[in-house]
């Protein structure tokens, strides 16, 4: 009698529903600034939705505060636009109560790493089965242009006229340190890559942390232009592929080699071959390689995109439900009358 919420449907990866992107478009008018990177993230998110085998009513988008927080209004699924930084907490409770749902958390660099930093850490370490998409524009957009926890040091903003003195946080390093089981990065304008990354995240069983480098064309335009623009991206970004050597460059003539404990950019040829390069292993149990990748940034290194880490661990809701079921198997379904009438009792007649 206590479990009458809804029938639980196990996830069926690889059985897409006969739905299209349009089925996931809500009737609300999208209200981000024209040219904002969020449009692309929304479009790719809507595109991949049919692939996971969940009907619309079983998908929930939960967001915090910031420009990203609007996204749930534009998804024709269940949605909850919560308060600043707390979306992971609502998602944790929802997923614990309703393991049958697919839960996405939409957040930004300020929402996830400043006000909500604590919750991101703990949702990841618990391996709560949520797909957290962090829009990183390295600025506070909704409050009109203050420095964010990912703003580069020295950045002049409305709140830091002489330049910020706070060292930026590396989101993927934080996710790895927090024991996230799936950690990836993509770029708003690289639509195909973004779509593939969101799809991988959606199919991951457990916490997925996806950083999307997103351009705020109003308050921080061109934040990633130096390495994401079409003309330069092949030479300045490293597309990670599991089991493949780390090669990049328009001519695929550069690679990453390990020198001591440090990655080193090398030119292939002149005695340097593919065999000398690091081979990406997203499934490595220890996170050292992924952590190293999470620290690489232009101009010292090409910026890695793709899946840095992808390991299997039991999820929070599985463990929680498992304990409940184990106790029920042992004691049977709880009997309220017996519970009330327990301990030391006596009768007055």
């Amino acid at each position: 009698m206590t479990d009458t919420i809804a029938a639980q449907t196990p996830r069926q990866p690889g059985q897409p529903l006969a739905l299209t992107r349009k089925d996931f478009v809500s009737d609300q008018e999208v209200r981000w600034c024209p040219g904002c990177g969020d449009y692309s993230i929304l479009a790719q998110t809507q595109k991949v939705m049919p692939d996971f085998g969940y009907p619309r009513e079983k998908i929930v988008f939960i967001s915090g505060i910031g420009c990203s927080g609007r996204l749930p209004y534009y998804m024709n699924t269940f949605g909850f636009h919560s308060i600043h930084g707390r979306a992971p907490t609502l998602a944790t409770g929802l997923k614990a109560a309703r393991p049958d749902l697919m839960v996405w958390v939409i957040t930004g660099d300020g929402d996830a790493l400043s006000i909500g930093g604590n919750h991101v850490l703990h949702a990841m370490r618990r391996n709560v089965d949520i797909k957290l998409i962090m829009f990183n524009n390295r600025i506070y957009g909704l409050t009109k242009g203050q420095a964010s926890p990912t703003s580069e040091i020295g950045k002049r903003t409305k709140s830091t006229p002489e330049g910020t003195i706070d060292r930026p946080i590396m989101p993927l390093s934080v996710a790895l340190a927090a024991e996230a089981t799936f950690v990836a990065r993509s770029v708003d304008t690289h639509t195909e890559h973004l779509q593939g990354t969101l799809e991988r995240a959606g199919f991951h069983h457990g916490s997925a942390f996806v950083e999307v480098l997103q351009n705020c064309n109003i308050f921080n335009d061109g934040a990633y232009r130096d390495f994401t623009d079409r003309e330069v991206r092949d030479d300045r970004m490293l597309v990670l592929e599991h089991g493949q050597p780390m090669i990049f460059g328009k001519e695929r003539d550069k690679g990453i080699r390990l020198r001591g404990l440090h990655p080193e950019v090398v030119q292939l040829g002149h005695g340097v071959t593919e065999a000398d390069l690091l081979v990406h292993d997203e499934g490595a149990e220890d996170p050292h390689l992924a952590f190293m990748l999470s620290r690489m940034w232009w101009p010292d290194y090409p910026v890695p995109v793709g899946v840095l880490r992808n390991v299997a661990r039991p999820t929070h809701d599985e463990l929680l439900t498992g304990q409940v079921e184990a106790v029920r198997a042992q004691r049977g379904e709880g009997d309220l009358a017996k519970l009330l009438d327990s301990g030391e009792t006596w009768t007055v007649s």
């Binding site: 919420i5 809804a6 967001s63 749930p72 269940f78 636009h81 308060i83 049958d100």
Partner: peptide, 13 residues
């Protein structure tokens, strides 16, 4: 509650 077909909607603060 989520999971109810046709009742997809958005709430928030």
């Amino acid at each position: 509650v989520p999971g109810t077909p046709g009742l997809e909607h958005r709430i928030g603060g």
